[in-house]
Design a protein around this nucleic acid. Structure first.
Length: 911
RNA sequence: GGGCAGUUAGCGCAGUUGGUUAGCGCACCACGUUGACAUCGUGGGGGUCAGAGGUUCGAGUCCUCUACUGCCCACCA
């Protein structure tokens, strides 16, 4: 007899179990020619992050996969790590320093970066500890950080290779600028959000000497001395150099050859005619600001317009804005509008809702701005990455993401990779001052755009300029986008560019598990990088899980305060409960709406397992159970419930395996739940109570429990380990862990549809008796008897053989099987071809019983109607598959019989 | 503007390739026994599967349209 504690306390065991796992090295994998590899890489959380529910879901899924595959005998490598999150981390450390009144500019670059490293030492592994708390079986010996020496080397290597290949260039284009972080952002880092703004209508006067002609040729409808433009951002007019209209727009025909005067600054503006201009928007006249708008920029290039940048890095107006210099962009907007009103040039403002880019880190409104930056040419990289997905070498689950991926890839734009911050991989570009000064510097930030003079791209710092020999060399001050290191993750973590044994063995990895937000940032880029630098796909399948939202459907975020903290849930309900709950409520790829009460599901389930185990172990005779299951069954006659529970177990096991292969984690979890609770506990254990000391029951209870623990382990690693450790087992398995036990083999010969069908008959009979008892309010302690009237045949034999179980489960004094006539004063129920009588001397209220039976008749008749018409339908009979027709016929016969019997009983009552 | 999801019991959701009587959890009602479990057991009530049309012998499931909700993408200033 083995005793388990009365209640399961996750907190007492989880940390200790995890420690043992880690110490014994179960998480670690090495290239092993005897085994097949299975590897996944963690989507590296950033070092400023703390574990949120999205992480919990994401990592639970990965851990389930890894534990499943590990038990299946694969050499499983789950590569963990963190990314340095350039902008986010720099912001955090800046804020920390600001508390002590320190600005990063004051202490300088080197000192600041030192501070960030210090911060990272102290706080950067919070999320790692939390992942351990979640039970993640990552290979911590291989943990990587995007700023590690090896990964940094990979980053430089990639930059140099791409540059040499002509896929990296320096260009002066409109980029997304975050005035708060004071850096450029990629298109993906600028998130569009709808903003309620205003559309302002402003008069731009026609140059004085040219007005009359304009009037003459434009007809009555044209304003005689000005053009009205519409803009949402009046402050950018300080950088206007032209006004554009559509050549087809009749309203502006008369503007040909004319100039306009920019209000306030009195700059002379060209009028250009271009079909890019939408005639339907605003007034059809577009003010052109090449340095502050992508469309205007295009026009500027096309017509050779001057690019006037009117803002500083912090989005205040610069000297080009004359009187507005020093004002913030929004202040300037108001001031300019005021001035325009004074001059009578302001017409109206109407509400206008439009999408505006926001910084994905600090949510500040992004300023489109002309600025020299480094870019990666993406089209050549995208092409092969499109092919591998088209050809199905990489598959998305659910498949709909394939289209999202392909759409984006086919319209991919160049990637702005330089960031004007200090924390990150510094761009391996060096400028020879002597050479580039000759070619004309720009913005003091480097040499001429698109030229190569004075640019040295090298992994290491050159001593002298290879062209002129000058030692006056300085490195580009910018760092690279964090994703420029993350996109190499699947191979840089295995040692690339070195051809390490790990890289050869584990690459390509198998599955990538991630959230939809990150498809463009990360997934797509990893595919491109994998193909470009390693010549092979980085992973075979991509599983995109849903977003975790709160109960109202909003995404959980710290700023909204609607967070359900996974660590808090772990401390309240236990890790296994958290894991099981979140998995079982998350359908494939579907967003999940979370509320705290959902974690009760997992907690209750853990409790159920604990108690079932406690019962089994308390009654266990260890000397009886150490047998080979297959051998034992071959020579032992099993009862129906025994054959049934084994059949159900193996069916469930097979189904769970299939679900995990198809990323249907919720279905796997729910089928285990259903099996454990409603089949094993509710029926089999209850039935086995009467024979618990017999060897067969001992073996079945023990084996089903043990194998169920195996099957459940990937989902609930701690409780299964804790119970498994308590099981008696042979010496060779002693001290081992359930996590390295083999995944149970599906014994197909144990799966019996027939046993399952027969058992259903028994459970239906028991349920019918219980139902009658409840209906007639017969207290459980009152032992009464019942009998079943059944025709001679297979069903009779089943009932006869198992009458003991029925008696036991329905709490009957006696249960007789045979041919019986209905006794007087008996309640009756019909199940299939059998009729159950329950004599209730003196208890029967005929009216009540009649009502009950009438209701039953109604139900049966209703179903009968449908069946009858279907079976009378010639088309159905000719077109439906045979087995469907046969089944329906059988069902009809059965119904017919039931109906007759119930009607007969009804008649008798009426007498 | 384009795309993708979702709409099934009071609430939150499942529902494989179309095929018997549409399920689960929570909540609800009634009753609770001998030692696994009140984080429980037994029984019960509750749904014209968003709406309309179509395909089919047969539709929650496939097609079209509509409505509402949510998400993603997008250079109409």
């Amino acid at each position: 007899m083995i005793e388990l504690a009365k209640t399961y306390d996750p907190h007492q065991v989880e940390d200790a179990i995890y420690k043992v796992w880690e110490e014994k090295g179960y998480f670690h994998a090495e290239p092993n020619p005897l085994k097949k590899p299975y590897s996944i890489v963690i989507p590296p959380p950033n070092i400023t992050g703390i574990l949120h529910m999205g992480h919990a879901l994401n990592n639970t899924i990965q851990d389930i996969l890894i534990r499943f595959k590990r038990m299946q005998g694969f050499e499983t490598e789950w590569m963990p790590g963190t990314d340095h999150a350039g902008i986010a981390t720099q912001n955090v450390v800046e804020r920390k320093l600001a508390k002590d009144g320190i600005k990063r500019q004051e202490i300088g670059r080197d000192k600041f970066v030192e501070e960030v490293w210090k911060w990272r030492e102290e706080y950067g592994s919070t999320i790692i500890r939390q992942l351990k708390k979640l039970g993640c079986s990552c290979d911590w010996q291989r943990i990587r950080f995007t700023m590690d020496e090896g990964l940094s080397d990979a980053v430089l290597e990639v930059f140099v290779r791409l540059y040499k290949k002509g896929l990296i260039y320096r260009g002066n284009y409109i980029i997304n600028w975050c005035p708060r972080c004071q850096t450029a952002l990629s298109d993906e880092e600028s998130q569009h959000k709808d903003v309620d703004g205003m559309l302002y209508y402003i008069k731009y006067p026609i140059k004085a000497g040219e007005r009359k002609k304009a009037k003459g040729s434009a007809g009555k409808t044209t304003e005689e001395d000005h053009v009205v433009i519409a803009t949402t951002r009046p402050e950018t007019m300080l950088g206007d150099v032209a006004v554009a209209v559509n050549p087809k727009d009749k309203r502006y025909k008369g503007l040909k050859g004319k100039s306009l005067i920019l209000p306030i600054l009195n700059r002379e503006l060209r009028v250009i005619f271009d079909s890019l201009v939408d005639m339907k928007f605003g007034t059809g006249a577009l003010k052109v600001t090449p340095a502050h708008d992508p469309v205007d920029f295009e026009l500027g290039l096309k017509y050779g317009l001057e690019q006037i940048n009117v803002m500083n890095d912090d989005a205040t107006i610069n000297a080009r804005g004359e009187d507005y210099e020093g004002m913030d962009r929004f202040e300037a907007r108001e001031a300019i509008l005021e001035d325009l009103k004074e001059r009578g040039l302001f017409i109206k403002a109407e509400p206008h809702r439009h999408a505006v880019g926001h910084c994905y880190r600090c949510h500040t409104m992004v300023e489109p701005r002309l600025c020299p930056q480094w870019f990666v040419k993406m089209k050549p990289l995208a092409k092969p990455a499109i092919d591998v997905v088209r050809k199905g070498r990489i598959k998305f689950y659910p498949a709909r993401w394939t289209k999202v991926y392909l759409d984006w890839m086919e319209n991919i734009r160049d990637w702005c990779i330089s960031r004007q911050i200090w924390w990150g991989h510094r761009i391996p570009v060096y400028y020879c001052k002597k050479c580039y000064k000759n070619s004309g510097a720009l913005d003091g930030r480097g040499p001429a755009i698109n030229g190569k003079e004075g640019i040295i791209v090298s992994k290491t710092r050159p001593q002298t300029c290879p062209t002129c020999g000058s030692a006056e060399i300085e490195q580009d001050p910018d760092v690279l986008d964090t994703w420029f290191s993350s996109w190499l993750w699947p191979f840089s973590t295995f040692g690339w560019p070195k051809e390490t044994p790990e890289l050869k063995y584990f690459y390509p990895t198998d599955s990538l598990v991630t959230a939809q937000e990150i498809i463009f940032f990360w997934v797509a880029r990893m595919i491109m990088a994998g193909l470009e630098f390693r010549g092979d796909i980085p992973f075979k399948s991509v599983y995109i899980h849903g977003t975790v939202r709160d109960i109202t459907g909003t995404k959980m975020s710290k700023s909204l305060g609607n967070i359900i903290d996974p660590l808090e849930m772990i401390s309240k309900y236990g890790t296994d409960a958290l894991r099981f709950s979140i998995i079982s409520i998350t359908a494939q790829g579907q967003d999940v709406f979370l509320s705290e009460s959902k974690f009760e599901l997992g907690r209750n389930f853990a409790n159920k397992i604990w108690n079932a185990s406690r019962f089994i172990l308390a009654n266990l005779k260890p000397e009886d159970v150490g047998v080979d299951l297959c051998a034992f069954f071959k020579k032992t006659e099993l009862t129906l419930p025994e054959r049934w529970i084994l059949s159900r177990f193996y069916s469930t096991l097979a189904y769970v395996g299939r679900c995990l292969d198809e990323f249907k984690f919720n279905e796997a979890a729910n089928s285990i739940y259903e099996f454990v609770w409603h089949e094993f506990c509710d029926w089999y254990i209850e039935i086995a109570k009467s024979t618990i000391s017999e060897k067969t029951s001992q073996i079945i209870l023990y084996k089903v429990l043990e194998k169920t623990l195996h099957m459940l382990h990937p989902f609930m690693p701690f409780i299964t380990e804790e119970i498994w450790q308590k099981l008696p087992r042979s010496v060779d398995a002693a001290g081992e862990s359930i996590m390295v036990q083999p995944w149970p083999h599906v014994q197909k010969e144990m799966i019996s549809r027939e046993a399952e069908r027969q058992m259903t008959l028994l459970t239906h009979i028991v349920t019918a008796v219980r139902n009658m008892r409840a209906f007639w309010s017969i207290e459980p302690k009152v032992r009464i008897e019942a009998m079943v009237n059944v025709q001679e045949g297979p069903d009779e034999k089943i009932l006869r053989d198992n009458s003991g179980f029925i008696k036991q489960m329905a709490r009957l004094a006696d249960f007789k099987v045979g041919r019986y006539a209905k006794p007087r004063n008996a309640a009756v129920a019909v199940v299939g071809s059998a009729e159950i009588y329950m004599p209730l001397e003196g208890l029967i209220d005929f009216q009540k019983e009649r009502a009950r039976l009438e209701k039953e008749v109604l139900r049966l008749e209703n179903e009968m109607k449908g069946l009858t018409s279907r079976l009378a339908d010639k088309s159905f009979l000719s077109k439906a598959p045979e087995d469907v027709v046969r089944k329906q016929r059988e069902r009809k016969d059965e119904l017919q019989m039931q109906l007759e019997k119930v009607r007969e009983n009804l008649k008798e009552i009426c007498v």
